[in-house]
Computed example of a mutant assay.
Amino acid sequence: MPTLDEHLRTFRRSLPPPDPAWPPEVRALVAYLHRHLFDPALRAATARQALGLRDHNVTSLFAACLGCGIRAYVNRRRVEAAQVLLRQTPAAVTEIALAVGYASLSTFHRVFRRATGLTPAAYRQAQKK
């Protein structure tokens, strides 16, 4: 049975590459976010700083290209990864929360429920039916 890390590597490889039509700074930011997606220290400001990007300009471009802000994008991708782990592994919810980049279980629950309408445990149970 694959480990959580192996599942997450597979998930990361399945993410769509940045659209070539996007501005170069947005493509670079999306690529950076994909590389660091499961790092609990990932912050929009840190990503922008690491790439030498200006705050307002790249944030506006990002939202225009992807239809959401940087934090929302990261949360959406982390929830998608958590859904894979909840369906495909017996790992505890806490372990999954930590694996996908949430340092706080309560934050993971809140973000997951907002995205799916279910708690992680309820989502897993519903997938078994």
Score class of each variant (00 low, 15 high):
Val93Ala: 04
Leu42Lys: 02
Phe11Tyr: 15
Ala41Phe: 00
Ala99Gln: 07
Tyr73Gly: 05
Ile70Val: 01
Val84Gln: 14
Arg9Phe: 09
Gly101Pro: 02
Lys128Asp: 06
Tyr102His: 10
Trp22Val: 15
Ala121Asn: 08
Ala91Leu: 10
Glu95Leu: 08
Arg35Gly: 04
Ala99Gly: 10
Gln83Ala: 14
Thr10Cys: 01
Val111Phe: 06
Asp19Tyr: 15
Thr46Phe: 10
Leu85Gly: 11
Ile70Gln: 11
Val26Phe: 06
Arg124Ser: 10
Pro18Ser: 15
Gly117Gln: 04
Val74Pro: 07
Ser106Leu: 02
Arg124Ala: 04
Pro20Leu: 12
Ser14Met: 11
Gln83Cys: 15
Leu42Ile: 05
Arg35Ser: 10
Val30His: 14
Thr59Phe: 14
Ala63Trp: 14
Arg54Ile: 03
Ala47Pro: 00
Thr116Leu: 01
Pro90Cys: 08
Arg12Pro: 00
Leu86Ile: 08
Phe62Ile: 04
Leu33Gly: 05
Gln88Asp: 10
Leu29Glu: 03
Thr107Trp: 07
Ser106Arg: 05
Leu66Val: 09
Leu86Cys: 06
His34Ile: 00
Trp22Phe: 14
Leu98Ile: 04
Pro17Asn: 13
Val111Asp: 06
Leu86Phe: 13
Gln127Cys: 11
Gly67Leu: 12
Arg77Met: 11
Thr3Asp: 01
Ala72Pro: 13
Arg13Gly: 01
Arg9Ala: 05
Asp19Gln: 14
Phe38His: 12
Ala50Asp: 06
Thr116Asp: 10
Val79Phe: 06
Leu85Lys: 10
Ser60Ile: 12
Ala121Met: 12
Leu66Asn: 10
His109Ser: 11
Leu66Trp: 15
Ala99Pro: 09
Lys128His: 14
Gln125Trp: 10
Val58Phe: 09
Arg110Pro: 11
Ala82Pro: 13
Leu98Ser: 11
Thr59Gln: 15
Thr10Asn: 00
Phe112Gln: 05
Gly69Gln: 09
Ser106Tyr: 07
Thr107Phe: 02
Arg78Glu: 08
Leu51Met: 00
Ala115Lys: 01
Gln83Asp: 08
Val79Arg: 00
Ala81Lys: 13
Leu4Ser: 07
Arg13Pro: 09
Arg76Ser: 09
Cys65Leu: 11
Arg13Asn: 03
Leu85Phe: 11
Arg114Thr: 00
Val58Lys: 02
Leu8Pro: 01
Val79Asn: 10
Cys68Ala: 13
Glu95Gly: 02
His109Met: 03
Ala21Phe: 02
Leu8His: 14
Pro23Ala: 08
Val93Met: 05
Val111Asn: 05
Ile70Ala: 10
Arg9Asn: 12
Glu6Asn: 08
Arg43Gly: 05
Ala91Cys: 10
Val84Ser: 12
Arg27Ala: 00
His36Pro: 02
Gly117Cys: 01
Gln88Arg: 15
Arg114Lys: 09
Gly67Gln: 07
Arg77Gly: 13
Pro90Gln: 12
His34Cys: 04
Thr119Gly: 09
Arg87Ser: 07
Leu98Tyr: 11
Ala31Asp: 02
Ala41Asn: 07
Ala81Ile: 13
Arg48Glu: 06
Tyr73Lys: 12
Leu98Glu: 09
Leu8Gln: 08
Ala28Ile: 01
Glu6Lys: 09
His7Gly: 04
Gln127Ser: 01
Val58Thr: 13
Ala63Ser: 15
